[in-house]
Design a protein around this nucleic acid. Structure first.
Lengths: 221, 221
DNA sequence: AAAAATAATTTGGGAAACCAAATAAAAATA
DNA sequence: TATTTTTATTTGGTTTCCCAAATTATTTTT
């Protein structure tokens, strides 16, 4: 039986992925045990199973690493998690700090097609409510370099990277507002009615229309 | 740990609920084993556990019955199942005959709040895509008085409520004819020879065999 | 009622995920 | 380097949900 094996297995993969990008000096059995809150013996057992499935490798110094296929699996789970989080906040009005627990359950629903449809339904969001980028259906995570300000998250800080429209009027308009690549801003709020936003730049609040936010590329800062 | 115990348990409750409203003469261990596809020994074990939790009782003649609290639990699972089915068809464009498998997974997500919000988001639908009524958040199911189209009266208007056969071929046949729960039809005439009927749907006359009319449930409209 | 058929129950296992406690190995420190 | 501390591994459990095969009711049929 397929059972809910995958449930546990997926949690291990996700944890290993997290650790690999965390500040933990060494991703070993102890670190993994602590993160997922299971006994080291249990963790060892599971890791061996994952090694057997070619999802994880243990380096000579005993630190753990996802194989390419393991990493892909992890990213596909993270994709599900983040898309469900978007759904919960955007459609069901959950606040962004209460969605995590629910998404932990939803991420284990077995159907890639379902998540692909969900993504489409949500309008292909670039980031989840926490501002983390969402891997694509192949498990590729775009390096977070640039997202349109349109898809940015209220309350977060950003650095302006690029302007996607070379129209002169547009550029001069931004210039007057002191908006240009390199500047640091905070997305204060978004108006659901017309998708305009308020940003804060150098202590000043500035309103920007949807058309403008579509053409300002930023990165989290 | 709470684990996924509930997952299996919930399936048993749901199965018992289904059986109690089916045409099965006696809801006993054998019937339950066959419906859920598990070994009789396994089923006996689970039933005993459920009896211990006061969710099921065994009558002196060994037939099984849900207690009030067991039935409520069952109905709350069915509520989740049906609301998720509505979501999948209405929002993610699944066709109504492919949502069942996915809803089987989604119905086990633990959060009543989530389903309540989902219900609100979907506009408090009365029925799922198959035409089955959705229990309310207290586990109450409104009774719908439906009659098979077979027994309907020529010349009267009806609304299709439900389809009594889940056979795929049957469902696809109806799908092609645009016949599904919610549609309004008129019974134009009945052929005494073979008990076939003519119905009118959207100005078009459609013939239906006796076998088909036995499995289409309608209410006067 | 006796035989046959059917249903319920018991018995002995199995796999998956867990754990605590003991031991072995490795790393850090004195 | 010797000692201590930390980490990895082994060993011997546990629980949950599942199975097949044997046994014991219980019903049905003859």
């Amino acid at each position: 039986m397929a059972h809910f094996t995958h449930h546990s297995e997926e949690n291990y993969l996700k944890a290993l992925y997290k650790l690999s990008y965390s500040t933990v000096k060494k991703v070993n059995n102890t670190a993994l045990s602590q993160l997922i809150g299971h006994n080291p013996a249990t963790v060892l057992e599971m890791v061996r199973k994952l090694v057997g499935k070619n999802l994880v490798t243990t380096l000579p110094n005993k630190s753990l690493k996802l194989t390419p296929s393991g990493e892909k699996k992890a990213l596909l789970i993270i994709r599900k998690h983040r898309l469900w989080e978007v759904f919960l906040t955007e459609k069901l009005n959950y606040s962004w700090n209460e969605v995590h627990v629910l998404a932990e359950q939803l991420e284990h629903i077995e159907s890639n097609d379902l998540v692909d449809r969900l993504e489409k339904y949500l309008g292909f969001p670039a980031v989840d409510p926490h501002g983390d980028t969402i891997p694509d259906k192949k498990g590729k995570l775009k390096v977070q370099e640039s997202i349109p300000l349109e898809n940015a998250v209220a309350g977060k800080n950003y650095r302006i990277l690029n302007l996607a429209d070379t129209n002169d009027v547009f550029l001069q308009y931004l210039e007057k507002l002191n908006i240009r690549p390199g500047k640091k801003i905070k997305l204060v709020s978004r108006n659901q009615y017309d998708n305009s936003v308020m940003i804060m730049l150098l202590k000043k609040i500035i309103p920007l229309s949807e058309k403008v936010t579509k053409n300002i590329l930023v990165e989290p800062a």
